[in-house]
Design a protein around this nucleic acid. Sequence first.
RNA 1: CGGGGCAUAGCGCAGUCUGGUAGCGCACCUGCUUUGGGAGCAGGGGGUCGCAAGUUCGAAUCUUGCUGCCCCGACCA
Length: 502
Amino acid sequence: MQQEPLPAVCSYAAMIPSSAAFSSAQGWVLSFSSGSALSAGTGAILDMFGFPMRLSNYFLPTLRETPAEAEIVSHRLMLRAGLIRQESAGIYAWMPLGLRVLRKIEQVVREEQDRAGAIELLMPTIQSADLWRESGRYDDYGKEMLRIQDRHERDMLFGPTNEEMITEIFRASVKSYRDLPLNLYHIQWKFRDEVRPRFGVMRSREFLMKDAYSFDLDKDSARHSYNRMFVAYLRTFKRLGLTAIPMKAESGPIGGDMSHEFIILADTGESEVFCDRQLLGLPTPPIDVDFGSDLNPLVEEWLSFYAATSEMHEDGRFEASVPEDRRVSARGIEVGHIFYFGTKYSEPMGAKVAGPDGEERPVHMGSYGIGPSRLAAAIIEASHDDGGIIWPAPIAPFDVGLINLRADDAGTGAACEALYAALEAAGVEVLYDDTDARAGAKFANMDLIGLPVQVVVGPKGLAENTIEVKTRAGGERKSIPLDTAAAEVEGMVKAAKQAFAV
RNA sequence: CGGGGCAUAGCGCAGUCUGGUAGCGCACCUGCUUUGGGAGCAGGGGGUCGCAAGUUCGAAUCUUGCUGCCCCGACCA
């Protein structure tokens, strides 16, 4: 079972001291700094604070009506479910529930990057224009780059990407081929001043991106670094509940000659894509894939089937290489992009290493992007129904939505509290709807925010010592005995997550 | 950046043509009733009508300028 993401919890805990209302909770500051608290599951930490996620105390501003500006379903649902709020064109605030999703996506991405041998660091959002003058991109990048000046009238910019900066970091410290290969990544906010931002966080100006940068002595080893990210991406998207297909891509303004986009199929996709149906069923590389081994056969298998975006599509080749009943032509959303671009930056910026022969040569580089903020929207595009979002279990903001149908009833209240405590102790994240809204409103709201498992506690069932559980994805409900409910729900949550494990 | 549209309460909208006390539904607050799929009744709060000039006795409404936002296209994680 993967580790639960701590950042969301940390930020939540950090907010507590600012509110006098919580000052009666004792000892939490000390508890928080203890190692055992941090190593425990998220739920256990919250429980330790004695501050459960009661909806009555939470901040979840959902909307019953759809804001007029939202065109596509993910944008509508993200606004309605209180995940995001637009602050300016293409610029969004992430509300608590949305932030939890974003952190979970980040964490899956992080785990797979780490597994593939990439090393995390964190570069700033603001960069010096001088760095970009070195590579020549300061003039090339155009108006998409947000240019700013500091108080000394120095030219700065809000980074749209980090090739220059990582190259600068690399060249300052790495001088020998013995330190290669190296792959450094960070997960940081980027800004691209899109002419027309749209579709919410799918195509925003400010967006969160995981960008990794590989450094190798020559093209062959760079190819291996590329393959490692290729495999990591296949695993990452699968764990997020997505079937992403690598497609040959144009390398765009970043440049280079080996490049693939990872595309998921969705009706609202921005681009037209064509591929062989076989790709949809190819097995995802397993968790124990050896990243040190030759990954070429694995990658080549994926690349042996036809797959292309409309820009790279050739009708003739498509029809010649794919039998008619296997031809898929659909719309797709780009969720990742990997490039090999050789010495495009290392050469002009002087990032050189000495080879075994003592000769210095520019390193061969690649860059590898995934947009977690965009993924949140893409996942909703791929997983929703008329009632709202259906989160894949691994990235759901909470595992369980616990509904108390009668907030003023001592019996249901006690049953909910007991269930809540038992589930949290088992490491299950629970959002407890203890509000006094009506049943219908609670059900609709819970469906909207899409938690994988709903637990409904009402006076009727309780009279027979039962509660009801419902899975959001399939909609199945069943009554189960109260005394085994916690164990059963825990099992459902674990099974739901297990279904996404690869 | 070309083309089109919109801007009135947190959200969805009417009112603008034809200038005269700023409205409706949802949400919010109070009370009572209700309580297993977005309850009912009664009462209540919330608005520089995007901004600025102008015309007028009087501007949400007419004029001009500006700004913001959305949609289509070209471009992109």
